[in-house]
Structure formats: structure tokens, C-alpha cells
């Protein structure tokens, strides 16, 4: 057996999104694993959403005489949510750039806070939507169709909530530990989640809202 170091042999797979500084090969390998693992988790999560989308489509006819998409959805509100989420993805992108190229932490924190605010705004509008649906009799216990809706769309909302909590936790970590490698990886993974949720939302917007109202 030889004592060759792992990194001498296969060391060129550094994650491009990270800026951990030089001479941290071991550290970068660990981080690379975490980011890769998170991608794998995202794939699993994507299956979850994919199946819920499929279920939703099969349940479109199951309104059981209850209100359907035409009666319940408001395109304006859904469009506002879409725009908020798209902009939040952009601001998160700015945060990622700040993380990678800027030394000053202020810019990063500001972009993250803007993203957080947009995430919360999205949640606010989504809840408002649900509220107005409830007022119109669009409750999940009314029909199979509404059940399918409320198992798909709020799950996305829950993901956004979790992402917001994570963002706050990361800001907390940054306050305590500074911008160290775990925080950087955390931000990188949260970015993946955030953009992923954006994509899922585009699916929801096109399939559920546009499809339902067309």
C-alpha cells in the first residue's frame, strides 16, 4: 500500500461556486461532497414534486361539483407571486456573486436580506391567495381536485418557508462564526434550493394557474 494522498490523484473537481481560499484541499473535498449530496437530495425532492404534479393532473376532473380553477384563481395574484420569486432568485444570484467575488460581507448580507424579504412577501401573497380561495369555498375537504391543489401548492410554500428559516439560520451562523467555509457551503446549497423552488413554482404557475385559467 502506498501513502499517496487522495488529492494528488483526483483533485481537479473543485466546486466552481466556492471560494474557500488556497491550500484547503481537504476542506474543499468535504464541501464538494456536501454540495453534491445536496444536488442528489434535490433530485429526490424533484421526484416528489413531479409525482404531485402528475397526481394533480389526474385529479383535475375530480371537482365533485365544487369550485374549479376558474372560480378560485386570480391570475394577477399568481403573477405577482411569480415575479416576486423570480426577482428573489435574481437577488440570490447577486448574493452568490458577492459571496464569490467580494470580500466585504455587507453586500452579501444585504442581498440575502432582500432575498429573505422577497421570500416572505411571496409567502404573504400565497397565504392571501389561499385565504381568498377558502372564502370562495375552495377548501381541500371540498373535492379531490382541491385536495390535489392543496397537497401540491402549499408543499412548495412549506419549502419556501423552510428555505427562509434556513436563510435566517445562516445569517445567524455568519454573525457567530463569520463567513467561514460551512456558512459559504450553506449559502451555496441554499442557493440551489432557492433556484430549484423557483423552477418548481414556474411549473406550478404554468400548469396550475395558467392551465387552470385557460
Amino acid at each position: 500500500m502506498s501513502s499517496t494522498d487522495t488529492h494528488a490523484l483526483e483533485g481537479n473537481s473543485r466546486h466552481p461556486g466556492l471560494n474557500l481560499g488556497a491550500a484547503h484541499a481537504q476542506e474543499e473535498d468535504t464541501r464538494e461532497e456536501m454540495v453534491f449530496g445536496f444536488w442528489v437530495f434535490m433530485m429526490s425532492d424533484l421526484i416528489l414534486f413531479g409525482l404531485l404534479f402528475a397526481t394533480y393532473v389526474t385529479m383535475l376532473g375530480g371537482t365533485a361539483g365544487g369550485p374549479g380553477p376558474q372560480a378560485l384563481f386570480e391570475l394577477k395574484s399568481a403573477f405577482i407571486q411569480t415575479m416576486i420569486l423570480l426577482v428573489s432568485s435574481f437577488t440570490f444570484g447577486m448574493a452568490s456573486l458577492a459571496l464569490k467575488y467580494r470580500e466585504d460581507r455587507v453586500r452579501l448580507v444585504v442581498w440575502l436580506l432582500v432575498t429573505l424579504a422577497l421570500g416572505l412577501a411571496f409567502l404573504f401573497f400565497e397565504l392571501k391567495d389561499f385565504h381568498s380561495m377558502f372564502d370562495k369555498g375552495g377548501v381541500p375537504s371540498r373535492s379531490g381536485y382541491l385536495s390535489a391543489f392543496f397537497s401540491l401548492v402549499p408543499l412548495h410554500g412549506l419549502h419556501v418557508t423552510a428555505a427562509c428559516i434556513w436563510l435566517v439560520a445562516l445569517l445567524g451562523q455568519m454573525a457567530v462564526h463569520g463567513l467561514d467555509a460551512p456558512v459559504k457551503t450553506g449559502i451555496l446549497r441554499l442557493a440551489i434550493l432557492w433556484h430549484f423552488l423557483d423552477i418548481v413554482w414556474i411549473g406550478i404557475f404554468s400548469l396550475v394557474y395558467l392551465g387552470g385559467l385557460s
Binding site: M59, A64, P140, R142, S151
Partner: peptide, 21 residues
């Protein structure tokens, strides 16, 4: 998860009535 929603929150994903399948 959907079965749990049916059982706990009165969803109708797989019930016999109200459009469940």
C-alpha cells in the same frame, strides 16, 4: 403523505367520495 392528509385534514385524495381516486 397524501393518505395522512386524507386521514388528518379531511382531504379527498383517495376517498370514495368527492372526487377522490
Amino acid at each position: 403523505g397524501l393518505l395522512a392528509l386524507d386521514r388528518y385534514l379531511d382531504f379527498h385524495m383517495f376517498t370514495t367520495d368527492l372526487g377522490g381516486n
